[in-house]
């Protein structure tokens, strides 16, 4: 299996679990895709579900009542953040990079990097030791993950040593993410977005020599 085959398998399996895969040629390209996902998104669900206003007296809900959209970026380096900040301001999106806990009722889009992809199950491995990064992958209604193609492995067992490095660190918190949050608890009907993200977008960055 070449790396290209592994990537193909990864793309196939991610689409089977309702993840959306995008290909980006550059960082600029990737971040533009992420922002366009946010632009196209309907406003935060928390304030709109069950056709009612959120609880009164809940201090966190004030934030989600604001009309502008919110995007959280947690682990991007300065250069990427600069590009993203520009794109966000151009599109009237609030960009937050910390204190996600204050946005507990919902963020529109959270963008993070993913450490690895696992092809045979269509899984992302996201080392999320920091609380902020963890929350970005949980409370955002859409999670956008950036993944280098070269970091996709055929299976979890095939990358056991790399995973052991991540998970054996004290205080580490490693997430395998395979598609958006889902449940089939009512009549076994699949419903997406019960607690975590309603959508998962994976932006593949091409760093493989062809």
């Amino acid at each position: 299996m070449t790396q290209m085959d592994i990537v193909t398998e990864f793309k196939k399996k991610t689409s089977m679990v309702s993840s959306m895969v995008h290909e980006a040629q550059s960082i600029q390209d990737a971040l533009e895709i992420a922002v366009s996902v946010c632009v196209k998104k309907s406003p935060a669900m928390m304030t709109n579900s069950s056709s009612e206003t959120p609880h009164t007296g809940d201090s966190d809900s004030r934030i989600s009542l604001m009309h502008g959209k919110t995007m959280a970026a947690l682990d991007l380096d300065e250069d990427k953040l600069k590009i993203l900040a520009k794109l966000c301001s151009d599109n009237n999106i609030d960009l937050i990079t910390e204190s996600l806990r204050n946005h507990g009722t919902g963020i529109d889009v959270g963008i993070t990097t993913a450490d690895y992809g696992i092809a045979d199950t269509g899984t992302l491995v996201v080392s999320s030791d920091s609380e902020e990064k963890r929350l970005a992958t949980m409370i955002s209604e859409i999670h956008v993950a950036l993944l280098l193609k070269s970091n996709i492995r055929p299976s979890a067992l095939a990358m056991c040593e790399e995973l052991e490095l991540l998970t054996s660190k004290p205080s580490s918190y490693t997430a395998f993410i395979t598609g958006p949050s889902r449940t089939a608890d009512i009549e076994r009907v699949l419903a997406i977005g019960v607690h975590g993200p309603l959508e998962l977008h994976i932006i593949l960055l091409d760093d493989i020599e062809k």
Binding site: K169, Y173, T178
Partner: peptide, 21 residues
């Protein structure tokens, strides 16, 4: 269990993780 290749989440926790509160 459910005929899934993998569940949406598998979480590996090694000791107390960061908690800002």
């Amino acid at each position: 269990a459910t005929g899934q290749r993998l569940t949406s989440y598998v979480t590996w926790i090694t000791g107390p993780s960061e908690c800002k509160t």
